[in-house]
Amino acid sequence: MHRRWLFLAAWALVVVALIAVVLRADGSDAGDRRSRADDGTRAGAPSATAAGTRAPSPSPDPSAASTSPTASARPAPSAERTSRAVPAAAPLAGRIGPGAAHRGVATFYDADGGGACMYDPGGDPLTGAMNTADYESARACGAYVRVTSGGRSVTVRITNKCPGDCASGRIDLSAEAFARLAAPSAGRIAVSWTLVSPSDVGTLSVRYKTGSTAYWCGIQLIGHRNPLARLEVRAGDGWRRLPRADYNYFLAADGGGCGGALRVTDIYGERLTLDGIGLRPDVVQPTRAQFARH
């Protein structure tokens, strides 16, 4: 009987010990859970990684954006503006640039819109012939200038070169243009004139000179808002600049680039690339392109 009680007591001690172990383990787990819940990473609270070390958003891929503020017109022929920006100044201007007031005298003659610049006669009655110095080997061709005298002004397009006795600053106006400034009986008046960039000029056209072939060609740009600085033809992977004749055609003496893509640049540095211009002599081929206004 005494041995049975000792045996039961021993088993009771074993059971108590097991219960204590289980309680300690459960308490430890509960404490760990409370500790994890209180250590700043509880559900719903931003973690240190999320709040302070979040990976930055990827920067936009520059190649995915347009490489220039291009204004692309796609007529037939097509045209694409390829300059990144149009500067306010005119780094490619010759003697006639924006902002400079030229002073001289104005006369008039029986103009028809044709002349040294080789534009077709007719159409615009408000034209002018530039003195030789400011004509500058056709750089003045197609430029628009505002002529002012006695509080009156008129805007004319340069289509001709004044005869050799015209001094620097002088401009020979069409009779219609001169009449906007003074009575024809005045004959000769003091004026000032400056380059302008008008709004209502339409779009550009291209013409190949009579006799142009794949072995020699002359290229003329018509209807440009701003004076031209250069014309280039495609040459392999690059561009080849053509010289400008005094009669306002850009010449490819060996025919290189004739009938291919053209790139034209105005005095402000804006470039337009013209595609689809056929090698069709003496045909005015319109585009939908035009230089920006200044």
Rank of each mutant, 00 (worst) to 15 (best):
R84Y: 11
G218K: 06
P98L: 04
R24T: 13
S59K: 14
G104R: 03
P163D: 10
H102K: 12
Y268L: 04
T287I: 09
A64H: 09
V283H: 05
L279S: 05
A261L: 07
G122R: 08
R240F: 08
N248Q: 09
Y119F: 14
V156L: 08
V284M: 03
A143M: 05
R24F: 12
Y208R: 02
A45V: 13
D26L: 12
A140M: 03
A179S: 15
A88S: 14
D112Q: 10
R180Q: 14
G202Y: 04
S47I: 05
Y208N: 04
A12N: 05
A252H: 05
L272F: 01
L242F: 03
N160M: 10
G128C: 07
T132H: 13
E270N: 04
T49W: 10
L228V: 09
E232M: 09
E270H: 04
S68L: 06
S68R: 13
S72E: 12
V156F: 04
G257A: 07
R263N: 08
K209M: 12
W193H: 08
N131W: 01
K161E: 15
G142T: 04
A65N: 09
Y119G: 01
S168W: 01
R230W: 08
G122E: 03
D165Q: 15
V147W: 00
G223W: 06
D172T: 07
T53L: 15
R4M: 10
A106L: 00
D246S: 14
P286R: 08
L23T: 13
R95Q: 11
R263Q: 12
C141Y: 05
G99V: 07
S137M: 11
Y144N: 10
D120M: 00
C162R: 06
R271I: 02
V206D: 00
A30M: 11
I277P: 01
Y249F: 15
T273K: 08
A245S: 15
L13N: 01
P184F: 03
A79F: 00
A179P: 02
G269F: 03
Y249P: 00
S205F: 04
R207C: 01
W11T: 11
R280L: 12
D26M: 09
A101D: 13
Q290T: 14
A167D: 13
H294M: 02
I171W: 03
I189L: 07
R4K: 11
L173T: 00
A235G: 10
D39C: 05
A175E: 14
N248R: 08
T273G: 00
F178L: 02
T213R: 07
R240L: 15
I277A: 03
V154M: 02
C141I: 11
A30N: 13
S28T: 12
V201S: 03
H2K: 10
R280F: 01
V196F: 03
H224P: 03
T53R: 15
D26T: 11
A116C: 00
A182V: 08
A10F: 14
A182F: 10
L181A: 02
T67M: 11
A17H: 11
R293E: 12
R152F: 06
T70C: 13
V201F: 05
V191P: 00
G113W: 03
I219C: 08
A177E: 04
D120K: 02
A253K: 10
T53H: 15
A106G: 01
P46L: 14
W193T: 02
R33Y: 10
S83H: 01
P77Q: 06
A143H: 01
G94T: 05
